[in-house]
Design a protein around this nucleic acid. Sequence first.
RNA 1: GCCCGAGUGGUGGAAUUGGUAGACACGAAGGACUUAAAAUCCUUUGGCCAUUGCGGUCGUGCCGGUUCGAGUCCGGCCUCGGGUACCA
Length: 1035
Amino acid sequence: MDYNFSEVEKKWQDYWRSNKVYKVDIDHARPKFYVLDMFPYPSGAGLHVGHPLGYIASDIYARYKRMKGFNVLHPMGYDAYGLPAEQYAIQTGTHPAITTDKNIERYREQLDKIGFSFDWDREVKTCDPAYYKWTQWTFIQLFHSWYNKKTNKAEKIEALIKIFEGEGNGAAEAVCSETKLFSAAQWNTMNEQQQQEILMNYRLAYLADSMVNWCPALGTVLANDEVSEGLSVRGGHPVERKSMKNWLLRITAYSDKLLAGLETIDWSESLKDIQRNWIGKSTGGSLSFKLGGSEHSIEVFTTRPDTIFGATFMVLAPEHELVSLITSHEQKKEVEAYVQRTKNRSERERIAEVKKVSGAFTGAYALNPFTGTEIPVWIADYVLMGYGTGAIMAVPAHDSRDFAFAKYFKLPVIQVIKKEGEELSDPATWDESYDSKEGVAVNSGFINGLSVKEAISAVVAESEKRGIGTARINFRLRDAIFSRQRYWGEPFPVYYKDGMPYTLDEKDLPLELPPVDAFLPTETGEPPLARAHNWKTKEGYPLETNTMPGFAGSSGYYLRYMDATNSESYFSAEAVNYWENVDLYMGGAEHATGHLIYARFWNMFLFDIGMAVKEEPFKKLINQGMIQGRSSFVYRVNLEKMAEYLMWERLRDRKTGVLFEKDFRDGNRKFDFYSAEAKLIIEIKGQKSLEKLVHPYEDYCRERGLKMLLIPIRDFFNMDEVMDRVNRALKGEDVPALIEKEPMKPVPVYISKNYPGREFYTEAIHVDVNLVHNDVLDTEAFRNWQPHLADSKFILEDGKYICGWEVEKMSKSKYNVQNPDDLIERYGADTLRLYEMFLGPVEQSKPWDTQGIEGVFRFIRKFWRLFHDESNDFQLSDETPNEKELKVLHKTIRKIEDDIERFSFNTAVSAFMICTNELSELKCNKRAILEPLSVLISPYAPHIAEELWHLCGHEGSVVKQPFPVCEAQYLVENSFTYPVSFNGKTRFKLELPADFTVAEIEKAALESEEAQKWIEGKQIRKMIVVPQRIINIVV
RNA sequence: GCCCGAGUGGUGGAAUUGGUAGACACGAAGGACUUAAAAUCCUUUGGCCAUUGCGGUCGUGCCGGUUCGAGUCCGGCCUCGGGUACCA
């Protein structure tokens, strides 16, 4: 008789569901707490084993906060738009909504089995029209907004139009695309089309031609964070740069806020660093270089204005608009060829050739604004059009890329910064540039002798005075491309009139995703929505055919949870004023440059327009570590190599009395083993090959007077027999070269990991981890695994087949995937929950290895037995607990509370184990001790806790119980065991009353018998006593 | 290349503020109970030396430093993991 987890877990899951135990409502009497998980994309593979890790941790925290008197919002939903369902639709014709719903159902089933405390009444799906209505609504607000740098927030576009009408765009301090200056009069004479075009440069959601990441295999554009090393993150398809008209979000308007906001939130430093790097703020100056013999000038951005005197050439991006205007007649051919070459190169090629220097001279010269020197203008693809102005002043002495370029094209290098205390040297002798910002200016006119920092300000100030430059801040962050040429996404609430986009009326939302006959682009290359019947407004204007990207729906979902069923509004003011923002967000660091930036932007915008009440959406964020796979390996034997290895082990080092050589060569012939002393050749091969070789070999040996042994591989299953033949041959007996035998049927042979020499003749092959327990292979299951393995033979060690292992990515092809469902089936949800926490710190990446799960399973049953007698009958005593028992309880309460507060869930599980071990030892089954324990464990193992709570005779859920309180009086110790160390090394222990003063401790320590042994004959130099800690005696 | 993070027994990990390194668990070895198995319980389990007992000694990636005392702090290096990549 034992704890029946499957029955108990099901019972309470049903109870929680039917009683809506986890339903939450606004309750002004209690403080709120919002615990959120990054919601999953419901993939066909079901819940990945890594997901529950974060969900369990956040669930424990949510349950804990609830018990601490908080009103906890803990919702769950689905990021339902995604490529896999759409790719599947393209292949099979199944509507992605069907696939997605099916997958969601499976996810839900899996989630329910783990016993989470989600309020499912608040579930959202991004593909639900009731949900994406508000995604579309937000887009409309973005479209009608601009960013006012003066007030530093987004404002209605009408306010901007007012400024244009009154003063022209010169008066508007707005974040915008490049726009020519116009006056109020000019604006007022423009027609609507012209005005709309101008406004497009200011809208926070805007339509523009831009260089995009085009992925032909997926048939769509991708955002920067969806591309890694020239390949799409999803699917790994090549990506090209292409100019296309797309919707963009002017996220760059928020660059500074996104950066500054990081200082106010409790995220890991590494995550903040990733965001800081992605935003990439650099401070410097913008400088203008006049071109000789031309009215044009080149505008550059530099972080090192101090090095201006060392600028010996300029470089434009090949796409730069000036290229065609300034290229001289003589250079035209070369420049055009270079531009063409750059254009044709894929992103991947470009990345692969990063270290290769290339470029072309335009024939034009610019004038260094400070020295007046003529410097040549080049083009090269190491200068990117998308950053800064697409042009640089090259200072080869102090920039490694410019240095490489100058060396390659033999351009001059002038040193203008020197390290303090160092002599100038000839840059021609340098191997690398001096890029550091440490040093003083030299060869630099009016800034000579200034430090880099001083020189930067001086040059900027002087440039401003002369009107050739200004201080400037640049960001690496780009506006987010918001269109996808795909079906499975939110339709844009946009229609076109005379080619200009207009938004739908809010009352016409949601604009539902229409049915289509196929999920592919049209023959003319338009997105799939172009296939939809009647895809136009009532008035007949065509609707936008692109759809929104995945991050559209996931950017504001946490706000929607606050008021998930509201049909009048995104969420009510009451809800957002109560719930405010997320107090604890749990999720993976892989979203650092995608979701977590977009969501912050989305929230900041909603904050600006008065919807959100906090500027930052996620106060505290914990990254759960990645769960890696732990792959198991079997070792397939190459029989010939193994036979050769075994033979060599017996022949080498004169073991037979004569010297043998391995892999002996004579002309074109090669023999496995040869002994010149014994005039003997030994060759190992399969029987059939040997039969073919026997005659030519015999001829060869006869000519040279050699003896020969041809030993088939099969003989090596009996090594003694082989050695017998070898020894007889060595003695000079007449041994036949080859004995006729039936050829062996080739069977796969697998050898255990620690077999000597194994690494010389085996190949490691992935084996399904489910066939392996504690690194021991279930050989029978292995034979049944795949048909070709049915006849496998095993060479064991100690009667077992030991597998090798390695930590790798978890993937089907590596056979290291484990399904949480199977573990729940075998051990129950409580065990799974505890085990996932027990594995190690949540934030740490770790391999998924179920080896230790048995220990946790044992603990659960041991915990159960505390409440039960030998025949598994519930049995508690009402006796008053003694001091020891109370101490165990209260010590545990304090430890658990401490550990949860610092998210150290693994040590909390240990504490429960220690507590259970100690109470078992004390044979304690007292209600006064065990009842609070059942409450204490409920955040971790809610099912068993609920069962025990009810067995204790309580009505209502344990979930609603307050967290047990640690009463310090039971923890008071009246003695302390001091470790006594000499010169820092612990030598013995000494128990002393806890209230001893330092002097008393010193006295007691020195007088103790043991101490004499160590002090003997030595002088005490110093004594350190830390009460309740240590005693250290220096002799 | 640059920016982060991490290196502790056979394994996962603990040591919260500089104060008894290896908690807890797995695995392994031995034993008890049992006709047997499962389950359960007990003992040992960082290395080396000693082993009759006492014990001794080394030990937290490597080298050095600060300190009465360093896994923890500082400097330099090595390895692994993550991010990023011509960002001017």
